[in-house]
């Protein structure tokens, strides 16, 4: 009996040992040389593999960084300036500086403001509904609410709000990778400059219809009246195709525009409440 055990152990040991030797030899034979800096850069990256940089993943971005002559075209939106600084140090290059950004869904057409006019009963994704119908409401520009952006987000930064009909971006989780911007078939999502305390002043509408048509479909639609353009002291607001747009790089959060908007399409978010002027 004991002999059997000895034989068994011996056989298995020999088998395992020889397999290890073969594996080692094969691994040596087929070893591919890689720039060790790729690993270093990859370590510095957030490792989310979100694709926000335009590359397939963090490894691909690291390779691109190492192989690029300069870092002018390369930026990791998730890591921001801090991570890019580290990468620049590793590679001895200069990184571009960018303001941190945050995604925003430019539609406030929740059910209360934008009543349903039909009842969609197909596959519940925005992209597929949009192939056949403009949405359940009369507004053809607004959010469809099925959450293609939610599916695209890898960072839990989007909350689906089925009862309201429009998802919400959780600013603190958003890393501005841009996946939702790509996913939204109505191009509603914009990457805007991130202000302290997540404050923002923004036109939450993409409706380019004429005012009367727009407001009939949705109470909080931008009607393109241009009042905000006139009141803005920083030339941050432009009006095109019946639609106002606030350039977040020019906006100084002075909050002059929201009160003049007749439909309430301009939102001011995360500010302390205004003092009521008697």
């Amino acid at each position: 009996m004991s002999i059997t055990i000895v034989y068994t152990i011996a056989t298995l040991s020999i088998l395992g040992g020889s397999a290890a030797v073969i594996l080692y030899l094969v691994a040596q034979k087929f070893k591919v040389y890689e720039d060790p800096r790729i690993d270093e850069v990859e370590k510095a990256l957030p490792g989310a593999n979100c694709g926000g940089c335009g590359y397939a993943g963090c490894r691909a971005f690291a390779e691109a960084c190492v192989n690029a002559p300069d870092l002018m075209e390369l930026y990791c939106p998730v890591g921001g300036d801090e991570v890019m600084g580290k990468i620049a140090d590793i590679l001895g290059l200069v990184a571009v500086k960018k303001d941190p950004r945050v995604a925003f869904i430019r539609c406030n057409g929740v059910c209360e403001f934008r009543p349903d006019t039909s009842n969609y009963d197909g596959v519940k994704t925005c992209a597929i509904e949009l192939l056949v119908y403009s949405g359940e409401t009369d507004c053809q520009w607004g959010c469809l609410g099925y959450g293609d952006c939610y599916e695209a987000c890898d960072f839990n930064a989007i909350e689906l709000r089925p009862q309201l009909g429009v998802p919400l971006i959780i600013d603190d989780n958003c890393v501005a990778c841009g996946a939702c911007v790509e996913a939204c078939p109505n191009n509603l999502i914009e990457l805007r400059k991130k202000f302290p305390k997540n404050r923002k002043v923004v036109v939450a509408c993409r409706n380019q219809d004429k005012g009367a048509v727009a407001v009939k479909a949705c109470k909080v639609a931008c009607i393109g009246c241009g009042k905000c353009v006139k009141v803005c002291p920083f030339d941050a607001i432009t009006l095109e195709n019946n639609l106002a747009f606030i350039d977040s790089d020019k906006c100084k959060l002075c909050r002059k525009c929201p009160p003049v908007c007749p439909t309430g399409a301009i939102l001011e978010l995360n500010f302390p409440p205004r003092k009521v002027i008697e």
Partner: peptide, 10 residues
């Protein structure tokens, strides 16, 4: 409109 019609792709 008091009643919403269902729409769906063919």
């Amino acid at each position: 409109m008091d009643k919403l019609f269902t729409v769906s792709p063919s």
